Deep mutational scan, measured.
Amino acid sequence: LKTAGVNTTDKEMEVLHLRNVSFEDAGEYTCLAGNSIGLSHHSAWLTVLEALEERPAVMTSPLYLEIIIYCTGAFLISCMVGSVIVYKMKSGTKKSDFHSQMAVHKLAKSIPLRRQVTVSADSSASMNSGVLLVRPSRLSSSGTPMLAGVSEYELPEDPRWELPRDRLVLGKPLGEGCFGQVVLAEAIGLDKDKPNRVTKVAVKMLKSDATEKDLSDLISEMEMMKMIGKHKNIINLLGACTQDGPLYVIVEYASKGNLREYLQARRPPGLEYCYNPSHNPEEQLSSKDLVSCAYQVARGMEYLASKKCIHRDLAARNVLVTEDNVMKIADFGLARDIHHIDYYKKTTNGRLPVKWMAPEALFDRIYTHQSDVWSFGVLLWEIFTLGGSPYPGVPVEELFKLLKEGHRMDKPSNCTNELYMMMRDCWHAVPSQRPTFKQLVEDLDRIVALTSNQEYLDLSMPLDQYSPSFPDTRSSTCSSGEDSVFSHEPLPEEPCLPRHPAQLANGGLKRR
């Protein structure tokens, strides 16, 4: 031991701790050491302190810390799992109470259905409401065949629209698609105040090879029609059969078919879209009749726009005509997947739907009320060519290029400059510069009032120099000039209409 001194630092001082000593042992101690050379000694003081209470040693090893962490984590996880189980049990009790009230408590799974309603004014964004509309049932219905791709499903009954099956008599087919079909039928007692009145209706139903998605689409269309409500110039929902059998959606019946066929059937002799010497046209149409058709469609679209509904496929083929020549817009409630459109795929009647699409819908897939206005301009062109085919002879690839360059279709022969300028306004490259349906209704209403009933179509000018029955994407082998976009001569082996020498072909294109 070194004694503290003047020249001794703290580091040089050493402390020796002795245990089991008493206060009597306190004092100075000297350590002597010697050898043959000499003797040396050092002294140190022993200080006795009071004994401290002994405390248990605390484990601070890493293993002990890990044990604490794992135990704490396990406890927290157990609490979370327990909370989830309690929540599930409570929510399951509430669901079972709800389904027992709906009398569908025996169901095993559900079809996820979404009601898609486009509400954005400047995009294709949609509001999806995840309302459960249908659930599968283990119960089988008697007297009705089961669908191959869709098991029997039981829908919640809506008393406002439900019609008993025994009050619906199915008739002949009116048309069909890939998985759905429409048949003519007679409904008894659609009007609650007149329970014995028989009404001719159209009934939409699924085919035998339909899938769950097809069922989902049909129900979504029905729900959309319920929500949009009734208007004179749209196909209205009349009722539905949802209980004890396949789903039947009952809508208004339009006896004169779609507008395109309606116009073609009323072309003057010699100007029909397909040469037929025995062709006997229906009643002749006046200019006022054509303007009235456009006015009614505009009114229907104005109503749909007021309900925040974007059609996305407005064309003469999707406008139906009733016995009283009332125009009714159809298929506005269809669920369309705008992100998976095949631009080169034709519709069932051979038309390319892209020829009715606005550039922003075609290139950027942006659907708005103003893109519907563009389609309405093409529909106007169809009306005043009596069912002509837009951009005849123009392949899709060429159409993309022409639209980007600002080309537009030429004025039809039997169309006034004012109406043609309306078409051109609908085809404005900037969507915000196109008229609204409200403005179109006002303009067409004024034109109808000024147009005489006696103004019949000028038969001295050809209505349509093209054969719409030909595929639109076909290139002409005998077109006049180098560019078949601006002219389209008859093919030698097929009868077509004579070309008027002083008139540019109706399907020609102009640059805006």
Rank of each mutant, 00 (worst) to 15 (best):
N325K: 07
P359H: 02
K438T: 11
E442A: 09
N453D: 05
I234S: 07
R446S: 08
P462L: 11
I219S: 12
L238Q: 06
D410A: 05
R446H: 06
E283G: 07
D464N: 12
R408S: 00
E455V: 07
L247F: 06
S220A: 14
V354E: 02
S469N: 09
N417S: 04
H279L: 11
D331H: 03
T416A: 12
Q284P: 12
G300R: 01
V485G: 10
I234T: 03
A361V: 04
P195R: 06
S479P: 15
K307T: 13
K230T: 05
D342N: 15
T473P: 10
G175V: 02
T368S: 04
K232E: 14
P471T: 09
S375P: 05
Q465L: 06
I228M: 06
A330E: 02
G388S: 08
V249I: 14
D244N: 11
W427G: 00
G180V: 02
G393V: 02
D464G: 05
Q465H: 07
N349H: 12
M205I: 04
E397Q: 13
M422L: 12
F470S: 09
F470C: 10
G406S: 07
L271Q: 12
L247V: 07
S484Y: 15
V326E: 06
E302K: 13
V319D: 00
Y343N: 03
Y367N: 09
I329M: 12
L271M: 15
C293Y: 09
S255C: 12
D244E: 15
I338N: 01
D483E: 15
A210E: 03
S255P: 10
H340P: 02
E261G: 04
A449V: 08
T477A: 12
D289A: 10
D445N: 12
S286C: 07
P359R: 03
T348P: 02
L285P: 07
G300V: 02
E223A: 13
K200N: 06
T473S: 09
D342Y: 12
R365Q: 13
K438R: 14
T242P: 14
S375A: 07
K192M: 13
V441L: 08
T451N: 10
R317W: 00
N325T: 10
K172Q: 10
W356C: 02
G257S: 10
N280D: 08
E252A: 15
Y295C: 14
P395H: 12
V378L: 01
V441M: 08
F332S: 03
Y466C: 08
D217V: 12
P353S: 02
K207M: 12
L168M: 12
I234L: 09
K230E: 14
K204Q: 03
D443H: 05
N280I: 12
Y248C: 12
E176K: 12
C274G: 10
K346M: 15
F376L: 04
A335G: 01
E272G: 08
D483V: 15
K232N: 13
G406A: 03
I234F: 13
H311L: 00
P173T: 11
T416S: 09
E221A: 03
E397K: 05
P353H: 03
Y343S: 01
S452A: 10
S287F: 07
I383N: 04
D372E: 03
T322P: 13
G180A: 07
V430G: 10
D410N: 04
N318I: 00
Q264R: 09
D472A: 11
Y456C: 09
G393A: 12
L380M: 12
I383L: 14
S476C: 13
S484T: 14
D193E: 04
F470L: 10
K200T: 11
I219N: 13
L190V: 03
P392R: 00
E272Q: 05
D483N: 15
S413G: 07
R424G: 11
P392A: 03
Q454P: 13
A185T: 09
N196D: 06
Y456F: 12
A449S: 05
I188S: 10
A358V: 01
L334I: 02
L304V: 15
Y303H: 09
N318S: 00
M224R: 01
L419V: 08
Q439H: 10
L215F: 07
D289G: 04
S216T: 10
Y262D: 01
G481W: 13
D458H: 13
G393C: 10
E418Q: 13
V485L: 14
